[in-house]
Write a protein that binds this DNA or RNA. Structure first.
Lengths: 206, 206
DNA sequence: CATATAATGAGACGATCGTCTCGTGTCAAG
DNA sequence: CTTGACACGAGACGATCGTCTCATTATATG
């Protein structure tokens, strides 16, 4: 039984996976939902191979735009000495707002696929089906004032801000309320400031 | 050219449309996305007819669960003499919360279809593609205290609460934050109360 | 370099989608 | 009751989905 250590080939797998995600991201830019065949062709890969990496089209579309349109949050607070959490959270929301509204088409496709996929997998075993970029951003914004919050208040505030930060609120403003981008930004700016202030007040009172 | 007034037959059209929506709502209860053929069969209608009423499957699924799971909001404040907007908004959110989490599967399908459909129709002409049940509910909750808000503050508060009330926040809590239903309700309860309070303060100050 | 093994390509398969045409049934005005 | 307009049913069509099998290529190790 001359067993040989199986070849790793992890680099090859990583590259083809990345090629697929990149191709999907490119094709989603214009808001057109690409068929898996289109993505595979753009990635110079056969259809069968694409299905070896992603169980369905949605799973592929979920990962695509996130990698493409991910700005560098670090630069947001880099040359900035502001400590005021209200100010920092508002600025972070502004950046997230821009990113979401600039990539609305692609993000809609991602969100749609994500929501449907989670519904399908409710009965099966859970899957890490969605990334979370907003929590790190929120935490970075709150970091300098971290000690001014009680722990419970901090966690509650963080969760509440997550409702406002993401792409879901964009859907509310556009599809439900039919409000324009500027109004949306104004409402969110007011809301995040009010929430930060409330959490601060409750933390220092008593 | 003997022209005769064309037969109305609007009742027939209304019934088949309603039959299709009802059938879709029934099939979506368990979270399984029904194929259009399944819906048509359940509605005792041919596939071709279903396509005569809805351009695609998503358009059908968007309208279904809303009609099915729409409680009577009026009863919420019927035997209630509370005037405090904070209390009323919190109670309204609790009701919406229950409705959304009880029908999570169907609402996910609706939301997914709605978000994707809006993306597709971005280039074409706008379409009334989504109903808005939360705004009337929010307005009913704020009604008794309506005069205590300045107009701008009222509109801003109403929009901010819409972010928290709907099904979108459920997606945030479940898929992004991975928090359980109880925690979600607690966070939202705190947030809506804080927002109402902030809007009130800003309205009476100055 | 040689080779076992992993990664890929090619393509068939049934199911569903969305569109189309044509024939039948049915309502309601005259 | 008659009849014209309308709703409906049946079914074909190509496109895409997701799964499968089998052959071919590429890679890392000895």
């Amino acid at each position: 039984m001359s067993k040989r250590k199986p070849p790793e080939r992890s680099n090859q797998r990583y590259r083809t996976r990345k090629d697929l995600i990149d191709a999907a991201g490119r094709l989603m830019k214009n808001g057109h939902k690409p068929s898996l065949e289109e993505v595979a062709e753009a990635a110079r890969v056969s259809r069968a191979t694409a299905y070896r990496y992603f169980p369905n089209v949605e799973a592929l579309l979920v990962e695509a735009p996130l990698d493409t349109a991910a700005p560098d949050w670090d630069a947001l607070f880099a040359g900035d000495a502001s400590i005021d959490p209200e100010e920092r959270v508002d600025r972070a929301e502004a950046a997230m707002h821009r990113m979401v509204f600039d990539n609305e088409a692609a993000i809609r496709l991602m969100l749609s696929a994500s929501v449907a996929r989670a519904a399908r997998e409710t009965d099966g075993e859970a899957v890490p089906y969605r990334q979370n970029r907003r929590t790190p951003l929120i935490e970075a914004a709150l970091a300098p004032a971290r000690t001014r919050f009680k722990k419970a208040n901090y966690n509650r505030l963080r969760a509440a801000l997550a409702m406002i930060f993401g792409s879901e609120s964009m859907v509310v403003f556009r599809d439900v309320l039919r409000l324009d981008e500027k109004t949306a930004r104004a409402v969110k700016s007011w809301a995040v400031r009010a929430l930060v202030r409330a959490a601060l007040d409750e933390s220092q009172a008593q």
